[in-house]
Amino acid sequence: MQALALRRRFQQPLCALALVACSAFPNVGSAQIVAGADVTYVNRYVWRGVTRTSVPVFQPDVYLAYRHTNSFLTVGGWWSLETRSGEDEISDTGPGVGGLGESNYWVELSTRGGPLDLAVGFARYLFDDDVPGGRDSSWNTSELYATLWWETTALIPKINLWYDIDAIEGAYIETSIDLRVPILPVAYMYLGALAGWSAGQAVRESAPSQPAYFEKDGLTHVDISVWASFRVGSGLSLAPELHVQINEDAATERTRVDDTEGAKVWFEIALSWAHEFGGRR
C-alpha cells in the first residue's frame, strides 16, 4: 500500500509536467533537448536558512529542457530523501522514520542576454499526507519565482524572488554576491555572501495557525559560503559547498529539536550529469 501511495504521489505531478512539456513543444527536434540529473548529499538540509533536517539527506534532481538558442524551458522534479533521524533531530519525515520527506516539481523559463541571466518559474512543493512529528501535506504549496544574475569577470551578483501563491503566501527574497577566486589556471573557487529576507512568509498575527517559514519578516539569515563546480568527466561535474550561516530569525536559529544557535555550519556535495542530445560532431 505504501509503495502504491508513493507511486501515485510521483506519477501525478510527473505526468502533468510531461503533458505541459509535450503540449508546449509539439515539434521539438532532438538537437534541442537537454537532459540532466544530479544528486546532492547534505549533512543537514537547510532551506532558506531554516534547518529542515538535522540529519544527512540525499537529494536527487532530474530535468528535461528544450533549448532555443540561449533560452531553456525546463521541467523537472526534485526529492529530499532523509536518513533515519533520532528523537531530538529535526526532520520532515518525523523522528525515526527517514525516507522521502519532500517532493518539488517545477517548470522554468530561463534566458541569457550578454552577462545577464534571467529565470522565471513555478514550483510546487509536496509533502506526505500523514507525518506524525514531521511536515505534512498542510505545507503543500506553490510559488512563482524569478532569478536575475549578472556575471562579470570577478563578481556574480544575484537576486532571487519567490512569491508563495498558496499555503504560505507572501514573498521571500535572497540577495547574494559571489567572488570568483582563481585557484588554478583551469579552475575557480567562489566565495559567496547571501542574505535572506522574508516579506510576508513569517507568522501572521491575524492567522497564527497558517503555515509560515519564519517568526518575523525582515532579515532571516546571512550565509557565507565557499564553493566550486568543476568537470570530472564527460557530462559529469562535481560541486562541493561549505556554508557558515549567521541566524537572524528564531526559525533559522533552530538547529535541533531543542537547540538554537546563533550560527551554524553545513556542507553539501553534488554530482551532476547533463547531456544535450543530437549536438553536432
Binding site: T74, W78, A187
Partner: peptide, 19 residues
C-alpha cells in the same frame, strides 16, 4: 574565458560546472 556553464535546471539544481 572560464565561466560557469550555461545549462538548464530548477530551484534546487546545483551550480553548473565551469567551462
Amino acid at each position: 574565458k572560464l565561466r560557469l556553464g550555461r545549462r538548464p535546471g530548477g530551484p534546487h539544481t546545483p551550480p553548473p560546472a565551469e567551462e
